[in-house]
Computed example of a mutant assay.
Amino acid sequence: MDNFPRMTTQTSSTPVPEGWREDNRALWDERVPVHVNSGFYDLDGFRARPDVLRDFETAEVGDVTGRSLLHLQCHLGLDTLSWAHRGAARVVGLDFSAPAVEAARTLAADLGYGPERAAFVTGDVYDAARAVPEASYDIVYTGLGALCWLPDIRRWAETAASLVAPGGFLYLAEFHPLTEALDDATGSRVVRDYFSRDAQVYDEPGTYADRDAVTVHNRSVQWQHTLGDVVSALAATGLRLEFLHEHDVSLFPRFENFEVRDGCHRFPAGHPRIPLIYSLKAVKD
């Protein structure tokens, strides 16, 4: 782990709250057992059918047979192990929460994957180059809900790009930052500053997997990164952007008027559509 000073700064030079990393880690560590036992993650169902990837992800990433894949900020490792199930020769998941990594290792063993096929390591994403076992991977993958926990998107891009093998690529799927600027009821009005780089500090009990869970470590610090910031950060690393796609579906009821259709959360019929998720692929030539 890096030894950070008591106060660091974001790309925009806005202050990063003291203790942000420790607070976020304590929050996630406490929620791991809640998530392991939740219907949201449904680990028993996953053991029976180990594939939770979204259709657009598998279509955009393509065939992973025989390839190595690194999953940054992997949490319980469901997405990581889904890529192994789809034929990746070796998958590595990294997360800063030691309890999450232990849960992922247990799940991998339950599925019959040894560490030579599916390895999980504890480490800070900014220090991933030193934490993971190999110097580079055919695919570096980051899934939904990861970037908001990082204050410095340029440093993330530099680290992720450094781990992509020549001829490989980085694939990112993430919730669209536009949704954070809109009202939570209908998503029809702009009520927050899309371009704000300020840290967002929350103190909320429970978790998205169980709203009624009793929790103690409830303070979290998050950041919103614009689409331009993310793409520009990756472009500055020398990776070549192959595509940037926007999707009008979500994985959870982001707005109160959402309906579930075709297995996804969507706006009601007739409601103007906006991008809810984006995905991109950036190649190392």
Rank of each mutant, 00 (worst) to 15 (best):
D79W: 01
A59G: 08
D79P: 09
L81W: 07
D79E: 12
V92A: 08
G93S: 13
L53D: 05
T80N: 03
R54C: 05
G62E: 00
F56M: 00
T80G: 01
A59K: 01
A48Q: 12
A48V: 07
T80Y: 06
S97E: 11
D55A: 14
L72A: 11
E57W: 02
L78M: 15
F56Q: 09
P99V: 09
A89H: 11
A48E: 13
V101H: 08
Q73K: 00
R90F: 14
C74M: 06
V101I: 15
L69Q: 04
L94P: 02
E60V: 09
G93I: 01
A100I: 07
A100R: 02
H85C: 11
G93K: 08
A104W: 00
P50H: 03
V52M: 05
R49L: 00
L76K: 09
A98C: 09
Q73P: 02
Q73Y: 08
T65G: 14
T65R: 14
D51Y: 04
Q73S: 01
R49A: 10
R67C: 08
E102N: 15
R49E: 07
D95H: 13
L81Q: 07
C74Q: 00
P50R: 02
H75R: 13
L53S: 12
V52L: 04
D79T: 07
L53R: 03
V101D: 09
V52Q: 04
H75P: 03
A88L: 13
E60L: 01
H75W: 15
A88M: 12
A100H: 01
R105V: 00
L81H: 10
S68F: 09
D51M: 04
P99H: 13
A103G: 15
H85R: 15
H71E: 04
A88Y: 11
H85P: 11
H75G: 00
S68V: 10
P50E: 02
A98G: 14
S68A: 05
C74L: 00
D95S: 15
T58P: 08
A59M: 05
A89L: 14
L70I: 12
V91K: 08
A104K: 03
V91D: 05
R105W: 00
D51S: 07
P50N: 02
H85Y: 15
H71L: 05
A103F: 02
R90W: 13
R105P: 05
S97I: 05
S68P: 13
A59C: 03
A59H: 04
D63T: 10
S68H: 11
D79H: 06
P99S: 12
T80H: 03
R54T: 06
A88H: 11
G87F: 09
H75D: 00
R49S: 14
